[in-house]
Amino acid sequence: MEVRTIKVFTTVDNINLHTQVVDMSMTYGQQFGPTYLDGADVTKIKPHNSHEGKTFYVLPNDDTLRVEAFEYYHTTDPSFLGRYMSALNHTKKWKYPQVNGLTSIKWADNNCYLATALLTLQQIELKFNPPALQDAYYRARAGEAANFCALILAYCNKTVGELGDVRETMSYLFQHANLDSCKRVLNVVCKTCGQQQTTLKGVEAVMYMGTLSYEQFKKGVQIPCTCGKQATKYLVQQESPFVMMSAPPAQYELKHGTFTCASEYTGNYQCGHYKHITSKETLYCIDGALLTKSSEYKGPITDVFYKENSYTTTIK
Rank of each mutant, 00 (worst) to 15 (best):
T27A: 15
T312G: 09
C190L: 01
R139I: 11
L290R: 09
V203K: 12
T10G: 07
D13A: 05
K127H: 11
A140F: 08
M207E: 04
V21Q: 10
H176K: 09
H90S: 11
L200R: 08
F305E: 00
T55H: 15
V67Q: 14
A231R: 05
A146K: 07
A145M: 04
K201F: 13
M26G: 13
A177C: 14
K127W: 07
Y72S: 11
I45Q: 10
T159P: 11
N14E: 15
W107Q: 06
V8H: 05
K106N: 14
T55C: 13
G257N: 13
P224Y: 15
E52L: 13
V189F: 11
Y274N: 00
D109C: 04
T91G: 04
Y284C: 10
T11R: 05
F9T: 09
D77Q: 07
Y306N: 00
E253K: 08
A250N: 13
A146Q: 09
N268K: 08
Q122K: 02
A87Y: 01
L283I: 13
S294C: 10
V188M: 08
K46A: 13
A115K: 02
A69W: 08
K255A: 10
Y234A: 07
V243M: 05
V189A: 11
V188A: 06
C193A: 02
G220V: 01
L179V: 05
I223F: 13
I105E: 02
L59T: 15
Q31W: 14
T260K: 04
T266E: 15
P248L: 11
K46C: 12
L65D: 08
E162S: 10
A177V: 08
E168R: 15
L179I: 06
K218G: 01
P300F: 15
K218N: 02
D303I: 00
L59G: 10
Y269A: 14
K183P: 02
C149T: 13
D23W: 13
K298C: 09
Q216D: 13
N309K: 10
A40W: 12
C193T: 01
R4T: 12
G194Y: 02
S240H: 04
S240F: 00
I277C: 01
G29D: 10
G194W: 02
C156E: 02
S310A: 10
P131R: 08
F70N: 08
K218M: 05
G194F: 04
Y208R: 03
K92T: 12
A250Q: 13
Y96F: 07
E68W: 00
T75N: 15
D303N: 00
L126G: 03
G272A: 01
C190R: 02
L119C: 06
T314M: 14
A150K: 02
Q175V: 07
L212V: 14
S213R: 04
E253V: 14
Q222V: 11
A289S: 11
D77Y: 05
V58I: 10
T64N: 11
G143E: 03
L88I: 07
K218R: 07
M244H: 02
A115N: 05
A205S: 10
E215M: 06
P249I: 03
Q238W: 01
Q123N: 06
Y172G: 10
Y208Q: 05
T75W: 04
D62S: 12
G220K: 03
A136C: 07
M26K: 08
V236C: 11
K183E: 07
L119K: 04
N129Q: 05
E71M: 09
Q197C: 08
Y84W: 04
G272V: 02
T312A: 15
D135C: 11
E71G: 14
L212M: 05
V67E: 15
E168P: 01
V185I: 10
R83Q: 08
E308N: 15
G33I: 03
Y284S: 07
A250G: 10
P249D: 00
T226I: 15
T302F: 00
I152Y: 05
C193M: 02
D303C: 05
S240K: 01
C149I: 09
T282I: 09
N14F: 09
T169F: 03
E71V: 09
H276E: 00
L290D: 15
V3L: 14
G143D: 04
T226P: 14
I15Q: 09
Q134V: 11
G202I: 00
E162N: 04
G82N: 08
V206A: 03
K307E: 11
L254S: 00
C271F: 13
T211G: 10
T19L: 12
N268R: 07
L290Q: 07
L173T: 02
T75R: 15
V185L: 07
R4P: 12
H51A: 08
N309Y: 07
L179H: 02
V160G: 05
K219G: 10
E215A: 11
S171G: 11
S213Y: 00
Q20A: 15
K46D: 15
G220A: 06
P97R: 06
Y234D: 01
Y138T: 14
K158Q: 05
H18C: 09
V67M: 11
K93S: 13
T198A: 12
V206Y: 01
D165V: 03
L291G: 08
Q196C: 11
K127G: 08
H48P: 10
Q216Y: 06
E162I: 00
E68T: 11
G29F: 12
A117I: 10
L153V: 09
T313F: 11
M245A: 03
A150W: 02
V166T: 06
T76W: 09
F70G: 08
Q238V: 01
I124C: 05
P241E: 11
G272R: 01
L81N: 06
Y36D: 05
G210T: 03
V21I: 12
I152F: 03
Q230F: 15
F128L: 05
E215S: 11
A177E: 02
Y274L: 02
S295V: 09
V8R: 05
N111M: 03
A136H: 12
S246D: 00
T313C: 11
L133Y: 02
Q98I: 12
S310Y: 13
Y36C: 06
Y155I: 05
Q196M: 13
V236E: 06
H256N: 08
K93E: 11
Y311G: 08
C112T: 02
L121Q: 01
Q251M: 14
D77P: 02
K44C: 07
Y113N: 02
N16I: 10
T43Y: 10
L17Y: 09
T302I: 00
Y137G: 04
T5R: 13
K92D: 06
T198P: 04
D41N: 15
V166F: 08
A150D: 02
E308R: 06
A262P: 00
C193S: 02
T76G: 10
A177H: 02
N61G: 13
L114R: 00
G202F: 03
K316V: 14
P34K: 11
T260L: 15
L114W: 04
Y284Q: 07
W107S: 05
P241L: 06
T91H: 03
Y214N: 02
C182G: 04
H51V: 07
L81T: 11
E296Q: 13
N89L: 09
I15E: 10
T91L: 05
G202W: 02
Y306R: 00
H18Q: 10
G257K: 06
K293Y: 07
Q195N: 15
P34L: 09
V99A: 07
V189C: 10
L163T: 12
S295K: 09
W107C: 03
N111Y: 02
C190V: 02
Q197I: 09
Q251H: 09
A247R: 03
A87L: 08
T278K: 00
P97T: 10
G288F: 00
D23K: 10
T75H: 08
P47Q: 04
Y274V: 00
E144A: 14
K218L: 05
M26D: 15
N16L: 09
D41Y: 08
Q238T: 01
T278Y: 13
E2C: 15
T314N: 06
G164V: 03
T75C: 09
G299Q: 02
T314A: 14
G82A: 15
E68F: 06
F174K: 02
L88C: 05
D13V: 04
T314F: 15
P224A: 13
L254T: 00
Q270S: 15
K158W: 04
L65V: 08
N187F: 07
A115E: 02
P78I: 12
G143W: 02
T64S: 14
R4W: 11
A262K: 00
K219Q: 14
P130I: 06
C190S: 01
Q122S: 03
Q175T: 09
Y113G: 02
Y269H: 15
V58T: 11
T55W: 08
I124E: 02
C227Y: 01
G39C: 12
M245P: 01
C261A: 03
L114E: 03
P241D: 08
K280L: 11
V67S: 15
E52Q: 13
A115Y: 00
S295A: 14
H18G: 07
A146T: 06
S86Q: 15
T226W: 07
S263W: 01
S104Q: 05
Y234Q: 08
N14P: 06
Y208T: 06
T278S: 10
P248R: 13
F242R: 01
